[in-house]
Computed example of a mutant assay.
Amino acid sequence: MSQAGLSAPLPSAENARAEAVLSRLQLLVTRKLDGLLQGDYVGLLPGPGSEAGESREYRPGDDVRRMDWPVTARTTLPHVRRTVADRELETWLAVDLSASLDFGTARWLKRDLVIAAATAVAHLTVRGGNRIGAVVGTGSGASQETPTGFWRRRRAAAAAAPDRQPPVVRLPARPGRKEAQGLLRAIARTHIRPGRTDLGALIDMLNRPPRRRGVAVVISDFLAPVDSWARPVRKLAVRHDVLAVEVVDPRELELPDVGVLSLADPETGALHEVQTSDPELRRRYAEAAGRQRAGIAGALRSAGAAHLRLRTDTDWLLDIVRFVAAQRHARTRGTTR
């Protein structure tokens, strides 16, 4: 499907908001990342690479397989050879835009952080002929009757602009900043539908057809059962460097003390009333949320994926800068993560 077809279902008001959000995010990313992450070409997830760089003195923890023996012999001090990331790599994004991402109680919506993460990845990888593509999951498209006006308005908007996009859309990988801008615009304009994307199937799409080694980035809230996506992530990490970007809202970690709170499941429309004044309930909720997030982190760690968590109530740009800087520092110490 073309990118124009992907963006067509959005109402004009949502389309305008998507353009405004994307423009603001791109400006923030360009200013921040260009100012703090300038330097040699090393990639988003710097691995050992194959292009030879400069030599430096050996430090404890360096990989002895990168010893530069000619320099070591001349200087009588052990040296290791630096390497830089391969150029003309292919980066693929698996972007989860399930209904649960259309939520936020702080400075940003979760879907805004999804677009922000995709923008940062594109900015950091589209250089030197690198290509970037994406597969976008937009929910199952199955909606349920609810008594709320919110869902009635959503169905009315969908009826006014017929939904012509499939549950998963593939945007081919192309080189160049102009093509990356078009990809980001298509993601920002994607219409979120009721239902949950099959995250495991979405990630599996990055394995088909088989590609040469590159970077795979999975952007989601990972609220689907861990068993449904853990194996595809492990399979993906066998061939590619995998980055998992987890998007979190603070209300998913703890409940505020605001009395009776009506909650609507954005994926099914089910309504629940919760008495948040009960401290025991808030404690159990926080503990359950903590176990859930620990399970997500453990599954990603065991799969060999780098893990970046972005929150809607914190400085997500600073989190990205710290993450990339940590990855690059690890590389100079002789490790890939």
Rank of each mutant, 00 (worst) to 15 (best):
G176C: 05
P225I: 03
P60G: 07
T332N: 06
L317E: 05
G298F: 05
P209C: 06
L33V: 08
V258Y: 02
G39I: 08
R196L: 07
A305S: 11
H240D: 14
L253D: 14
L206D: 04
A117L: 03
L37P: 14
L171D: 08
S55L: 00
R234M: 12
L184N: 02
G39F: 12
L27G: 14
A85T: 09
Y285R: 08
G43K: 09
V247N: 14
P48A: 09
N207W: 07
A120P: 02
G214V: 12
T76C: 03
I219A: 07
P162W: 11
L124D: 00
P266V: 08
P232W: 09
E280N: 07
I219Q: 06
L6R: 10
A289C: 08
R56G: 01
A159K: 10
A299H: 12
E280C: 03
R111M: 05
A118E: 06
A186M: 04
M1K: 12
A230I: 13
A201F: 03
R291C: 05
V260S: 14
I187M: 01
P210C: 05
R309H: 12
K178R: 15
R56N: 01
G149K: 06
G214F: 11
R24M: 10
V233A: 07
G259D: 05
L300G: 14
R65S: 03
E287Y: 13
Q327H: 07
A188S: 08
V84T: 13
W229F: 07
Q181D: 12
D68R: 00
Y58S: 02
D221N: 13
Y41G: 09
V274I: 15
A237Y: 09
P232Q: 15
G128P: 00
W108P: 00
S277G: 11
H329K: 13
D86Y: 06
D40G: 08
S98V: 02
H240T: 13
L236K: 07
A299F: 02
R74K: 03
E254V: 07
A188W: 04
L44T: 09
A20M: 10
H123G: 03
D278M: 05
T146C: 08
A20N: 15
S7P: 02
P175V: 09
G133P: 04
L101D: 14
R127M: 03
R155T: 11
P279A: 11
L113W: 07
L28M: 12
G182V: 01
G298Y: 05
P78M: 01
A305I: 03
R331L: 00
A325F: 05
A20I: 03
R331I: 00
A237L: 10
L97P: 01
A73F: 00
A16F: 06
S2W: 09
R174N: 04
D204V: 03
G49Q: 06
A120K: 04
T138L: 15
A288V: 10
L223E: 08
A94S: 10
L97W: 07
